[in-house]
Simulated assay, not measured.
Amino acid sequence: MKEDFYEILGVSKSASAAEIKKAYRKKALQYHPDKNPGDTKAEEMFKKSAEAYEVLSDPNKKSKYDQFGHAAFEGGGFGGGGMNMDDIFSQFGDIFGSAFGGGGFSGFGGFGGGGQRRVKGSNLRIRVKLNLEEIANGVEKKVKVRRKIQAEGVTYKTCTTCNGRGQVTKVQNTILGRMQTAATCSACGGSGQILDGKPGDADAQGLKVSEETVSINIPAGVEEGMQLKVPNKGNDAPGNGVPGDLLVAIETHEHETLKREGDNLHYDLYISISDAILGTSKEIDAVGGKVRIKLEPGIQSGKILRLRGKGISSLNGYGSGDLLVHVNVWTPKELNKEQRDFFERMQGSENFEPKPEKSDKSFFEKVKDMFS
């Protein structure tokens, strides 16, 4: 079972953004690879701390984590999980400041200490529309993506500006003395390599556009606006870089009769007065097809029937929601003479007088139950 992100950083759920950042910096410096060479446990804690900070420092991801826990990042990921050293130092290197010679480390192919930085390619973004059944059960989508890949026959050589380090060092005289700073090499973009030879179909970075079919596993229970991450399916990076990611924004088709509320679904069922009095059975829409329900004689307008487990599968894996059927008795606006005569005779009948029982909840009680 995955550790709680708040426990990893040692902060409470009410911690401010500044407190979360401070806690992460403390953990990152404690478990930094340069301070713990060859210590695999320290390296693992270094990665866990970065993963926790990536989520908790982003208000949107933090909200999803607080609501769904680690399940919010499963089935393709919503921005967390599986971070490597290049991801950590490309995203959070500034947090380390000058504690490790410009924020990097030497033993893992990262930024500082004479090591070579592995540049990450740019991310790609697409939108995927899902219908209600796909949302309820989860689905695998295959999409065609046009992404930049390294062209065959491309060769690189060591950048002469930074001598393959990916960084250049500048020394400035200030009133406080000589200050040394490190910056990304502008000649190679930080990769430590520059183009040496390329085929005619490659661009200035040695990349070409290629169309690829990508499989995206979408978990059940996703919502409009969520974003999944497919690692390494963005654009390639020049040289020895790592590919960017494919970011998938979720959009949903509105169902004709079913309305979603969290993991529950709502259905408005309209019946006639005679059906309400005599009782009947009705076929209604549900995820995956039709279902038949029985209405007892004397059913009241406003009654809510709960079909357990007929809603949306929970994103956190805890079962499924329910299908709530709202019964509405339809009153005809026009009657023929025979119908009017019948109801006029019934106006004084005791059976037609309203006699609500204690079990018949008011509208406000039904609303309260629905949201509880």
Rank of each mutant, 00 (worst) to 15 (best):
residue 78 F to V: 01
residue 156 Y to V: 06
residue 363 F to W: 08
residue 117 R to A: 10
residue 63 S to P: 01
residue 158 T to D: 05
residue 329 V to K: 05
residue 219 P to C: 13
residue 199 P to L: 05
residue 50 A to Q: 10
residue 36 N to W: 07
residue 216 I to H: 08
residue 172 Q to S: 13
residue 86 D to A: 08
residue 12 S to R: 10
residue 278 L to D: 14
residue 174 T to K: 03
residue 312 I to D: 05
residue 333 K to D: 09
residue 155 T to C: 11
residue 214 V to S: 07
residue 292 R to E: 15
residue 154 V to F: 14
residue 179 M to T: 10
residue 195 L to Q: 03
residue 270 Y to E: 14
residue 276 A to S: 14
residue 225 G to E: 08
residue 118 R to M: 08
residue 165 R to H: 06
residue 182 A to F: 08
residue 261 E to L: 08
residue 235 N to M: 03
residue 280 T to I: 07
residue 346 M to T: 09
residue 168 V to C: 06
residue 79 G to R: 06
residue 213 T to G: 02
residue 215 S to T: 12
residue 48 K to P: 01
residue 188 C to I: 02
residue 117 R to M: 11
residue 347 Q to S: 15
residue 202 A to H: 04
residue 56 L to I: 10
residue 69 G to E: 03
residue 94 D to M: 14
residue 181 T to Q: 15
residue 101 G to Y: 10
residue 87 D to Q: 01
residue 104 G to Q: 06
residue 192 G to N: 03
residue 158 T to V: 13
residue 280 T to V: 07
residue 229 K to Y: 08
residue 238 P to E: 05
residue 130 L to F: 05
residue 20 I to R: 04
residue 61 K to S: 12
residue 158 T to Q: 07
residue 265 L to P: 02
residue 165 R to I: 02
residue 195 L to V: 14
residue 72 A to H: 02
residue 100 F to P: 13
residue 215 S to G: 11
residue 139 V to F: 09
residue 230 V to E: 09
residue 174 T to R: 02
residue 313 S to Q: 14
residue 28 A to Y: 02
residue 49 S to I: 01
residue 23 A to C: 08
residue 50 A to V: 04
residue 155 T to S: 15
residue 239 G to Y: 05
residue 350 E to P: 05
residue 323 L to H: 11
residue 61 K to M: 15
residue 50 A to M: 12
residue 11 V to N: 01
residue 290 K to P: 02
residue 219 P to A: 10
residue 259 K to R: 14
residue 159 C to D: 06
residue 150 Q to W: 00
residue 114 G to L: 08
residue 144 K to F: 07
residue 371 F to M: 12
residue 316 N to H: 05
residue 19 E to M: 02
residue 124 L to A: 01
residue 199 P to R: 07
residue 350 E to A: 10
residue 24 Y to H: 04
residue 18 A to E: 13
residue 20 I to F: 12
residue 114 G to V: 01
residue 3 E to T: 00
residue 257 T to I: 01
residue 370 M to N: 07
residue 33 P to L: 11
residue 19 E to S: 11
residue 325 V to Y: 12
residue 359 S to W: 08
residue 371 F to E: 01
residue 122 S to G: 09
residue 122 S to Y: 10
residue 309 G to Q: 07
residue 83 M to A: 01
residue 87 D to I: 00
